[in-house]
């Protein structure tokens, strides 16, 4: 199941005792402050989680993949996210323990046959 704003508000209600309206408003505001900073051209660095950076892209020729028609892609500014080392490590460790579980389970299954 994907984590949503409703889940995040629920966590603030359960873990910190914000009331439901405050929790919902806080979650909205949290993402809005990040959007506002990026919209103003300022990157966002959340230590332990990751950085949201801005990149300027040059115009380039593109193509409609369905029709093959050529359409120019204009110059634009885009947001990129770089996960922190801490977050990357947490994701990798977990995936590793999952594949170990999978292998252990496969051995058990083989043994029972």
């Amino acid at each position: 199941m994907a984590l949503t704003k409703a889940d995040l508000a629920e966590a603030l209600y359960n873990e910190l005792g914000l009331n439901k309206r405050e929790a919902k408003e806080f979650v909205e505001l949290f993402f809005e402050k990040i959007r506002a900073s990026l919209s103003a051209g300022e990157s966002v660095k959340l230590s332990g989680f990751g950085n949201f950076d801005l990149r300027n892209k040059n115009p380039r020729p593109g193509r409609n993949p369905k029709t093959g028609e050529e359409i120019p892609i204009s110059a634009r500014r885009v947001v990129t996210f770089r996960a922190s080392h801490k977050l990357k490590e947490r994701v990798e460790e977990n995936a590793q323990s999952k594949s170990e579980d999978f292998n252990n389970q496969a051995e058990l299954n083989a043994g029972s046959r």
């Binding site: 984590l3 949503t4 959007r35 989680f49 977050l87």
Partner: peptide, 25 residues
């Protein structure tokens, strides 16, 4: 505490293999 809680919820969702979906963000 609330900011740390939100980032922890998001990190642990990803560490647990879940997606995060925030409309408009």
């Amino acid at each position: 505490l609330a900011v740390k809680e939100l980032l922890e919820q998001m990190s642990s969702a990803l560490a647990g293999g879940d997606r995060i979906e925030v409309r408009g963000f």
